[in-house]
Amino acid sequence: MKQIAVIGSGTMGNGIAHTFAQFNYQVNLIDINQPALDKALATIGKNLDRQVSKGTLTIEQKAVTLQNITTFTTIEEGVKNADLIVEAATENVELKLKIFKDLDQYAPAHAILASNTSSISITQIAAVTKRGDKVIGMHFMNPVPVMKLVEVIRGYATSDETTNIIMSLSQNLEKVPVEVNDYPGFVANRILMPMINEAIYTLYEGVAGVYEIDTVMKLGMAHPMGPLQLADFIGLDVCLAILKVLHDGFGNPKYAPCPLLVNMVAAGKKGAKTGEGFYHYTTGSKELIVSDKFKKS
């Protein structure tokens, strides 16, 4: 297994492509438009420069990594020789089902189809293909080149062979794969998202402010990042989408998204990627500044 295709060149997609290419896999990075792909390559280059400056990568290894990535704007061309395709598109059920129908049509019969979904059912995704035994979840963590965990999610029809291949492949990337079964949110987000949602409720109900909530969790619980900052980093729209999957999947009101989160997403305040969520984000600044909306009067 040497030929990898990655669908989607956003934060997760370019991180996945970077990681495979760094470990000398040939990677086809696929997106619907070339400017998005150009931006992804620039991001990968900057992240590789950071690794070089830290001494974890040589300049020669950076060059080889970039050479290992080829970009495509059509799925048909990008996946025709792939051994593994990793889908890393937006967390939207309809979009993912459409992509997997196309992958099943255009990918070689032997190819494994993986989704980087953080919450959507692998069984549901596999059901739109004719190769359910070869459909699996590979949930990487952000930032992909740094974070060690890969949640490997078995759908109802996923075979032992496919699971073993993906577990081994993840180890080849120097990741730590953890096998989990296919239920809403899997493990990571089934536990993480209710915590983030509760932190937002704590703010919404006026128990404490943004800075105070995050400080309690960082200093009191040894979290490297407070839950509100983490929500901004993940993307508030992504958090909302995952909570909706949990709420719909379990039918339990404890997963219902906080109204404040719903309103912030509707207002376009989606976190770091839009420049404002619970905090303000300015280019190049590492200082955390609480959003004006949540500053104490």
Rank of each mutant, 00 (worst) to 15 (best):
Q3M: 07
I4G: 04
I7A: 04
T11G: 00
N14V: 07
I16M: 04
I16P: 03
F20L: 10
F20C: 05
Q22G: 15
Q26P: 11
V27H: 03
V27M: 07
A36T: 08
A40H: 13
A40V: 12
A42Y: 13
K46A: 12
K46F: 11
K46M: 09
L48E: 03
K54C: 11
K54T: 09
T56L: 03
L57D: 06
I59F: 13
K62R: 14
K62T: 11
A63Q: 15
L66C: 08
T71D: 02
T73G: 04
T74M: 06
G78K: 06
K80N: 07
A82G: 02
E87G: 10
E87V: 13
A88N: 11
T90Y: 15
E91I: 04
N92M: 02
E94Q: 14
K96S: 07
L97G: 01
K98V: 11
K98W: 00
F100V: 10
K101A: 12
Q105Y: 10
I112V: 12
L113A: 03
T117N: 03
S119P: 14
S121P: 14
Q124S: 11
Q124Y: 02
I125L: 04
K130G: 13
G132R: 05
K134S: 11
M138I: 11
M138R: 00
N142V: 13
N142A: 05
M147R: 04
V150G: 01
E151Q: 05
Y156M: 14
T158E: 10
E161W: 12
T162G: 01
I166C: 14
M167T: 12
S168Q: 15
L169N: 00
S170N: 07
Q171A: 11
L173F: 04
L173Y: 12
E174F: 15
K175C: 09
V176W: 05
P177C: 02
V178H: 11
V178F: 03
V178N: 02
V180Y: 06
Y183Q: 15
Y183R: 15
Y183L: 15
G185F: 10
F186S: 08
V187D: 00
N189Q: 07
I191N: 04
M193D: 14
M195H: 09
E198P: 13
Y201I: 09
T202K: 03
Y204R: 14
E205F: 06
V207E: 01
A208L: 06
E212H: 11
E212V: 12
I213E: 00
D214T: 13
L219V: 15
L219N: 12
H223D: 00
H223K: 05
M225Q: 04
D232K: 08
D232P: 08
F233I: 10
L236Y: 08
V238F: 07
V238K: 07
I242Y: 10
H247S: 01
G251H: 05
A256C: 08
A256L: 12
L261P: 00
N263K: 15
N263E: 15
M264F: 00
A266P: 08
G268M: 01
K270R: 12
G271K: 15
K273S: 00
G275M: 08
G275Y: 02
G275I: 15
H280V: 14
H280I: 15
Y281E: 01
T283C: 02
G284K: 10
V290K: 01
S291G: 02
D292C: 03
K293C: 07
F294M: 02
K296Q: 04
K296R: 11
